[in-house]
Design a protein around this nucleic acid. Structure first.
Lengths: 358, 358
DNA sequence: CGATCGAATCGAATCGATTCGACACCAGGA
DNA sequence: TCCTGGTGTCGAATCGATTCGATTCGATCG
């Protein structure tokens, strides 16, 4: 019925100026009508909207608005792994959910970037964004930080190595993990091993040597490891190829092969711990009687296991929200400060006094 | 050492014009030097880059470039569920991975939107984007389509109801599911029930009545249901609250309560099928001897089950890639056509002839 | 040696909005 | 009657780049 009468023909979008002309007002007035800022008479507003409808005008072009206002309405989240990998970790998903929630409530949208600086174009370098959240929980963020701070974009790191120009949201990885390890120690465990998160970008698996450890910059993994070693200074560690059940399984097999006398395995994530439980079941070791297993994260893991994992619970959604709020505050020019969250030990049924004392 | 000498003081980003001035060339030449288009003498290019370095200039502002070129370098993906919900489905994650892969290879970035049109601002309405992929596998896309097509944005739907102005990537949901159902029929099954994907936006659970079915617009779920009913016209269906193991468990319990004589359960997704297996195990029904279970998706599900699920395999990553390529082709002005993929029945160890013939 | 051509560079227009200051108009108070 | 203050509208400048057509300058060719 009401055929959109676009004077410039099909395919060409109308501009605010055309709408204004048709409504018989100036472009400035039309702009005010759309943005809602400034006083516009009701009748005028109506005429502008009517003209817009007639021209099938969908509102101001975000690109032009972005240039003029200096805002793009976009907040980027930079992950280090590709989506398929990163999103298998429920902690990443909940974190992202918290971020998206807060960001969208403020009228911003979320740009999902994977930190690929190899390509000279696109992504970090070229995408419009008002702020960036770096989720580089493990490896080297420096190049990304350099590129983005050059672009004058407020930068927020989530569980990242402290860096100038980088706001931070962190959790008490080390003390948290220490508390978990202490729990095992209190139960009587002495032969304890750790499955760590990846220690390098390539996600190399294998026993963690001290050289490897020294050159690694995997913040979260190293912090959690330090927490364990505060209690068990000599605990051996094996590096998993990702925060995944199957990786935990692989790693735990190796640990149990190397030392069948282990009485407890600590996973640096719940998924790794679940893998360890599977490894135990494979060898007919009962959890927790023959082997205690401790996780980290407090992921709500649905039906993946018959056990209630003893774990260190972190507020993952809140972490995301806080990071997003930090970004928004920085954009608003408000004073901002780093945020630190606290974890809590949650005791389930996967830890118990060791039976097989060696 | 080399202190960035920003003449306009701190906090203010240099502009291309300033860089050009410092390098002693015109803005146009500086632009050419950065973009690589057009001939620029090596020496000139060097001087421009040097000036940029001195001013700590990080390259052309994406906003301005976006306005001028009419491109933002952003492709949006519109999902209907919030991240926390959507990303628990491995199919969504792999789909997204395929999309991101293809998009990033072309130098675009991925904007993740949740289809919340309630808010008058932000998101779909205001975010800059060159194309949009709609992943509304289930419910109403019309409002989003309207807003975006007004913005002249090429629109690609993945498993969506056909619509004018919407390019499509689809799979043969109905024939695929029909083949699976036929497999069960061939094995001798006659008492078969279905667990469907959500049928409305609210993710309401419960038995699917014919009224509900008639008013539902959940494309994928309805197609797959039709495939089952092509073989088992009277198969009862229950609607799950999401594509999740726990939802499959809940639904399967209800099905088995309603008809203990069932010999097979069809899940419209692998996760739902896994839930059905769990429900069977709860009741000491053995799969496949006492109950056959069929899934859909062919998700590579790691260690969640001891079974190899019989399922209809769909090329999820390829679906994502195809959708992205469609968007890119549309942007390049190339001729585009809808894409359809084919599924394949993969027989595992969760289907067998019924033992308990009634 | 003059005409021709291509490479390198520049000026100016343009993309589509926002926003600031100016101006006209009208009501109410002194 | 004059001034004040607020409301509604407009003009013009501006955001920071890209790009088109024009111009300059050597080098090559006949």
């Amino acid at each position: 019925m009401a055929t959109p009468a676009n004077p410039s023909g099909d395919g060409a979008r109308a501009t605010l100026a055309q709408v204004a002309a048709r409504a018989g007002v100036s472009a400035s007035t039309a702009s005010l009508a759309f943005s809602g800022a400034g006083p516009v008479a009701d009748g005028t507003r109506e005429r502008v909207f009517a003209a817009a409808r007639e021209l099938d005008y969908g509102g101001p072009d975000p690109r032009a608005r972005g240039l003029r206002t200096g805002r793009s309405g976009i907040i980027a989240v930079v992950m280090e792994d590709r989506i398929r990998v990163a999103f298998r970790d429920p902690m990443v998903v909940t974190l992202l959910d918290g971020i998206a929630d807060e960001i969208e409530a403020a009228g911003y949208s979320l740009l999902l970037l994977t930190d690929s600086l190899e390509r000279q174009t696109g992504g970090l370098r070229d995408a419009p964004m008002d702020a960036a959240l770096l989720l580089g929980c493990s490896t080297d963020l420096d190049p990304a930080v350099r590129v983005l701070s050059q672009r004058q974009v407020p930068l927020i790191g989530v569980e990242a190595e402290p860096r100038p120009g980088l706001l931070m949201v962190d959790i008490d990885n080390r003390p948290g993990m220490r508390a978990g390890a202490q729990h095992l120690h209190d139960l009587g465990h002495r032969r304890v091993a750790v499955i760590t998160l990846p220690m390098d970008r390539a996600h190399t698996r294998g026993p963690l040597t001290s050289e490897w450890q020294d050159e690694s910059v995997a913040y979260t993994g190293l912090q959690r490891l330090a927490g364990v070693r505060d209690v068990f200074p000599d605990a051996p560690a094996i590096v998993a190829g990702g925060s995944l059940i199957e990786e935990g399984l692989i790693a735990a097999r190796a640990l149990l092969d190397a030392d069948p006398g282990l009485t407890a395995i600590i996973g640096q994530s719940d998924l790794l711990a679940l893998g360890a439980i599977q490894a135990a079941e494979e060898r007919a070791l009962r959890v927790p009687d023959d082997l205690s297993v401790l996780g980290f994260d407090g992921a709500r893991i649905d039906g993946l296991s018959r056990h209630r994992l003893t774990t260190i619970v972190q507020p993952s959604v809140e972490k995301g929200r806080a990071a997003a709020r930090l970004a928004l505050a920085a954009l608003a020019g408000e004073p901002v400060e780093n945020v630190a969250f606290t974890t809590a030990l949650r005791i389930g049924d996967t830890t118990a006094p060791p039976r097989r004392t060696v």
